[in-house]
Design a protein around this nucleic acid. Structure first.
Lengths: 235, 235
DNA sequence: GCCTTACTGTGCGCTAGCGCACATAACTTG
DNA sequence: CAAGTTATGTGCGCTAGCGCACAGTAAGGC
């Protein structure tokens, strides 16, 4: 396969000791992730674990009536399929590609073996999972207490952090599905942000014009999550 | 210490192979947990990990403005302080005793050592943490999409499952703080349940009269969590 | 037994977000 | 470039839950 990988690859993998990294890379398989692609379905056997490079993946819970909520978002800083290392072989969430790009995958069994035999891998991946838990926690809090406009800011910032670009390619419809709200609600909230000169919106293309402003507009939830990921690598 | 422990103790500990169990029990220290007691504060060093026996503990996130949300509830089926085994020494949540009772505690460092050296312990505790993640996930979903009355049912059922009694001792004020809603909202929702003969309420004492009815009234979120914990021990 | 304190019930105006129905407006495809 | 498709903007009535104010009412202390 001939895939134009980002020069930086996946942070989680890069942070491993060289020896462990080599062991892991041997079993990695590059793949391209299309917008909307479902990496795994809820309650389905997790055949692979994924490491995004320049793609973003959403962990989405879908209710019986079709209502959905994004529980967390994963990019180049993490992995998709943490239940595998936790010793479970299914997830209650669906994993959907939210921003197309590239990444790696590895067979669940292979990863679990490496995880069990290599303490440094176990240590780092568990710490990552803890950061993910913090993100899920803040999603729960934010869903309860923050107004839509703030939630949108948090969501945009989390996506920005994982894309390293100022342009996001996503429709309001898509964002609404992720946040579990009406599309019209996003139109309104995004309109306000645009009026304040923080973003510019046009048919599926969002340009972030003033990131610090966006951060000031977001609720505290964003900073909590950011902090959790920032401290991940320093211990 | 002479504490009247429940005959059954903590499920998580009981499920360990005898050898591992003995190792763990050596370092356990019994303690009584008072209603409202804070086992650990958010962002504070986790000195101990706790194993409730007949107490229930809430993991509570408190926002800057004082608004709170319960993220998960832990009883005799689990442990309080999972971040320790994940390799982090703080939590973004506060742990508060929601129903008084007894339990054990163990020094974080000691537990981490046992976790690192005993694969069976690691395996079980990680599986538990995954079930906890499912609970947090459903909290996020429920906060977004379910009406208060359903959420109250879910919450009552989760508490019941951990108490093995039909009487809960908790005020509406307390429940409101846990769910992150107004006390008046609980008055109204509880009133409806009472009118339907599902519970009877009086000044801090809730009697569950019709558990199956309560389950039918709850949203799907409860069953998802229940299922996650049920399958925990069978693999 | 009285009095304080804690718990619960109720009413009322307000707001955020929902559901629905359209009206535009911009890409895309033939 | 016409036509269909997709994305966004807007309006309107509706509901759940909030914030506040206050009225009962049980429980426990002295």
């Amino acid at each position: 396969m001939d895939i134009p990988f980002s020069p930086h690859g996946n942070t989680l993998i890069n942070a491993l000791p060289l020896e462990d990294q080599r062991q892991l890379i041997e079993s990695l398989e590059p793949l391209s992730m299309q917008l909307g692609e479902v990496l795994y379905e809820s309650e389905q056997l997790l055949k692979y674990v994924f490491f995004p490079v320049d793609a973003i993946v959403s962990l989405l819970y879908v209710m019986e009536n079709g209502a959905s909520t994004e529980i967390a978002v994963v990019g180049e800083e993490g992995m998709v399929g943490t239940p595998v290392i936790m010793g479970t072989n299914t997830s209650s969430c669906r994993a959907v590609v939210q921003s197309a790009g590239y990444g790696y995958r590895i067979r669940s069994g292979t990863l679990k073996q490496i995880f069990d035999r290599r303490p440094a891998v176990a240590h780092l991946f568990l710490r990552y999972t803890q950061a993910l838990i913090t993100q899920i926690t803040q999603t729960a809090v934010c869903n309860r207490h923050c107004v839509l406009e703030q939630q949108l800011c948090r969501w945009l910032l989390l996506s920005l952090d994982r894309l390293h670009k100022t342009e996001l390619i996503m429709t309001q419809e898509l964002i609404a599905n992720m946040l579990g709200v009406r599309r019209e609600g996003i139109t309104e909230a995004a309109g306000k942000l645009q009026k304040q000169g923080l973003i510019s919106y046009s048919r599926g293309h969002i340009h972030v014009l003033n990131r610090p402003g966006l951060e000031r507009m977001a609720c505290e939830c964003y900073q909590v999550v950011r902090q959790a990921y920032a401290s991940l690598l320093y211990a």
